[in-house]
Nucleic acid binder design. Sequence first.
DNA 1: CATATGTCCTGAGAGC
DNA 2: TGCTCTCAGGACATAT
Length: 279
Amino acid sequence: MMPELPEVETMRRGILAIEGATITAAEKVRCLRKPIAVTPNISTIRRRLVGKKVKQVGRIGKRVVIQMENDDRLLFEPRMTGLVLVADPPSQEHVRFRLEFSHGEKEVLYWDRRGLGMIYLLNDQQYQDRFSLENLGPDALDVTGPLLKKIFGKSRRPVKVALLDQKKVAGIGNLYASEILYVAAIHPAKRCDRITLKQWDLIAETTVDILQTAIAHEGSTLSDGTYRNALNDPGGYQNMHRVYDKEDKPCPICMDTPITRIVQAQRSTFFCKACQKRS
DNA sequence: CATATGTCCTGAGAGC
DNA sequence: TGCTCTCAGGACATAT
């Protein structure tokens, strides 16, 4: 569930082989569930994609971007339970969309159990406008201490809540926010404006390190088993989680304090109250 | 401007 | 056993 930057980056890498291939079909899959949002309508998408060549497969924040030769971009936004696949989906009934390609490239499927995800096609101008820096912050893999201080330094919000704001920094979600603050030893309720530059340095360094490691392990598949890579295999980073979904388990650092769960902005946060001081 | 809250959706798990 | 209820948290619209 909840694909964040590492999971979406893994999806992107899983379909890189379509670069250079020509799209031969694009269709919404008939499905018993409520159809997911596809904009513009499917006939327009088909007209603009079929016969066109894929220039590049990218990622922006938590979205997979299929960039065409004319710079039209097809975006997959998985939100909670969406997957981008090249192979057998976890279930047929939740397959929502498919793309077919020339040259024997495997078809790409979009699968989504809950169906909160979105698919949309933007032209170059629409894409630039939609993802300008005022609408989406810099990628979390590119953050530095001074950058974080500049972005968050005057905010009064709790740092955990602020890190989830995609307009500020793109890619961090609920799971990795807890993991990052735990490793950086920062209390999740600490106000941004009370965090020092040295601490922002540490948060930035930890963010990049954790996200890169999670990518290397192809993301996190939680106990519900929803998240899969493009080959429908689970990720491996869940085995390296320190605090996420580990309420009452011993802190891996002090081995002494049970992990605490609190709710911030209607989302669970996990931390060690001994290792992550408010000071 | 910054921040807070309600909404969408499915299925796992809890409680009775 | 089988029903009802709660919860999980992505992005965004709307409210304060």
